[in-house]
Design a protein around this nucleic acid. Structure first.
Lengths: 413, 413
DNA sequence: CACTCATCATTAGATGGTTGAACTAAATAC
DNA sequence: GTATTTAGTTCAACCATCTAATGATGAGTG
């Protein structure tokens, strides 16, 4: 538990500010000073002082006093997250394009650009230069509008170690890559991470931006734990525990696409046999359903065709999907037994397959996991489905501010 | 990151004391005030004050000043963990017996008792009464010697939820059980946990007792992450991340015995198919090697016979072991890809199978895991092999003190 | 052997974040 | 209009850590 690092009074204030901001973001309704004092355990006196700091630094602003909350007494003045001052930048390079997003602490997308393109077998230097070209103007725009950019994240479709080294991205055809070598990386200093992990972050309500009023997917609370599975050509994943992503020792925890469901199964390109990806990856499914093979099997059109045939009840398609589903369920159950969380969010193209898919998965998983007397397994569809990794990357940037607000206070732009 | 709870000045001191104690325990050589100031980031002044508190409360004592450390200057006065004041109590109920251990903060076993017995199909009330009968005198003895008992742990061979409810222990024939109903539990208030998780804790050098000089297994450092696999009739496991056990949301993370390696494999008693336990559990191996079947397959004698035949090269035994090994490797690789740690500790009866087993596993795993460019997989044998769960349970008790030293200071016994 | 220097440890006073208590503010109940 | 209730502010007091000065104790130096 002990973090092996001492703390002093400045850390104390920084921590308490961080707790307050975190509490505000994760709440689905505006909180007053009094509410925050109760929620965090601070005294009214301290809350009053720290509240003034947050107002001064444009982290929050006061709403109209609200007397409808309680029958008696002076009405409270709730805070909302201020708009227009604190921003995070998200960057993403994917197999089908690249883009950049600027996100306000209050959750609004300030600016965003996405370029569709076939990224396979591209030159990293070229791509980073192009990403630089679209992110530069966005940064400039932020400055012009009076924003302070507090951090950034970079989502990549591959294995990323320590937030700054790409080990490999097979679908891009990229190998090992020290990210510091790119100007863009040195300028913005983003935290790099796997696409699935960034997408998982975007599902956590109130992780680094104000939780939408009403709470988005009301089934998921800000401190829930879940496994996120990102499905595309490859299959990735992430483990979220009590509202924070589990990064692992080297930065690639949650690679569920390469959990094996059959130790004598087909050989995967990763070297193992029977990996989930060989049953439930987009390309594997298209080929199993005999739609097309080879290079054309990776195109999105082939997946659309698979979906049509599956809806029409074509036996080949139905069989392939069923087989993929069995593998998916096996991996989910194994992962739940390994990390002990009760919720699975199924992202990517698999989320298209039928409205009752979640329910079917839920029912079957419930039969399989340990501790089912005490655990109610849930399978949810992602609430942020549009560019989730890009948004997650921006939230990683904003999180730098939330974890360390004091370092950003009381100095110029 | 933010724990959603504010901190005040008392928490600050408590935290810093905790960090200091933690640092002392995890170090393999005695540390002076100056060393500790450097290691924790505290100033010499504060370190001096807090050091005096630790001395006053008999947490540490001063050794002879040591001038051999540096050529120049005043010699430092290193601390060692004091003996005779702070104790934790470990309790265990297993399929083959039950016992109690009292552990000093300095790592010495103050007292311990173990009763061998066949515990299958026993009455919980009876067993808890018997455990009470042997732990009572040990507690009394601690009091007499001037110890302060700071906490306790209870290791159980089954699924434990929230540290105080047994969901099921199949090998005992016990079902759901609220542990508060037992006198012993109410009196000592132990944290209950799965046997494998407790055993995993005991492998962490300096987790809650002073790290042995020289460091025990020098390959394992106190802040390493690893997966511990406990093998017996059933197979359990635990995930340790950066020196602390990952308990999971309900308290049963790491149940690797019920990770499936073949979704069409034999049906396991847990309801799934192809669980590791059906390939590599003690009973499964004995039956696969055609030694005996049925109830007699669970006896330790059958496992001894399996070991003899395997050593002699009997084909049935060798095949069974190889098959078990394949399953084990598959689960290890999947678990590593899921939680991203690079070390596996293989505990229980599997650790008997040959001196080069670890090396063989290491070599094969290295071929299978993702990120093998950046990760060196290690397979280790447990350094604490005698009653590891019992010792781990006692360390859980001591950890209460280490996490919260201030609450134990400055008041009577 | 006196002097310098480096390192360890303590002491005194300063700094600064949180606190408790008293106070002001603003609403409803009767 | 007065009592009551809840929200929020003010300020002296507290206390944990920090800075800086000082004491302690050894080795090196000429």
């Amino acid at each position: 538990m002990a973090s092996l690092r001492s703390i002093n009074q400045e850390d104390l204030r920084n921590h308490n500010l961080s707790v307050i901001i975190d509490t505000i973001l994760r709440s689905s309704s505006p909180l007053s000073r009094a509410d925050l004092a109760k929620a965090t355990g601070l005294t009214k006196a301290t809350m009053s002082l720290l509240g003034a700091m947050l107002l001064d630094n444009q982290v929050v602003r006061e709403m109209q006093p609200d007397s409808s909350q309680s029958t008696y007494g002076r009405p409270s003045t709730p805070f909302t997250v201020a708009h227009g001052r604190w921003a995070g930048i998200g960057l993403q390079i994917n197999t089908d394009g690249y883009g950049c997003m600027a996100l306000d602490l209050d959750g609004t997308v300030i600016d965003s650009r996405w370029e569709d393109d076939d990224m396979r077998e591209t030159d990293p230097d070229d791509i980073f230069a192009r990403l630089d070209a679209i992110s530069g103007p966005i940064e400039e725009d932020l400055r012009r509008k009076g924003y302070r950019t507090v951090g950034s994240g970079l989502a990549l479709p591959g294995l990323v170690a320590d937030g700054r080294e790409l080990l490999m991205a097979r679908n891009l055809g990229w190998g090992q890559l020290k990210l510091e070598r790119f100007d863009l990386f040195r300028r913005l200093g983003p935290v790099a991470g796997n696409e699935a992990r960034m997408a998982a972050l975007a599902q956590i309500p109130g992780y680094a931006t104000q939780r939408p009023v009403g709470g988005g997917d009301s089934r998921l609370s800000p401190t829930d734990s879940f496994i996120y599975i990102s499905t595309d050509i490859g299959i990735g994943g992430a483990v979220v525990k009590r509202g924070t992503v589990d990064v692992g020792d080297h930065g690639f925890a949650g690679e569920l696409g390469h959990v094996s469901v059959d130790l004598n199964g087909p050989t995967c390109r990763c070297g193992r046999r029977g990996c989930l990806e060989t049953y439930a990856g987009r390309r594997a499914l298209v080929e199993a359903a005999d739609i097309v093979t080879g290079a054309r099997a990776v195109s999105p059109r082939a997946a659309d065709e698979l979906y049509r045939r599956w809806e029409a009840g074509d036996p080949g398609a139905v069989d392939a999907i069923d087989r993929g589903l069995d593998a998916m369920i096996s991996v989910m159950a194994s992962a739940i037994n390994t990390v002990d969380v009760d919720t699975v969010i199924l992202g990517g193209f698999w989320s298209n397959f039928g409205g009752n898919l979640a329910q079917r998965l839920e029912d079957r998983l419930t039969q399989l996991v340990l501790g089912r007397q005490a655990v109610k397994v849930r399978v949810l569809m992602p609430s942020v489905a549009e560019y989730p990794a890009l948004r997650g990357a921006a939230e990683v940037g904003l999180r730098k501010f939330i974890d360390n607000p004091l370092t950003f206070f009381g100095q110029g732009v």
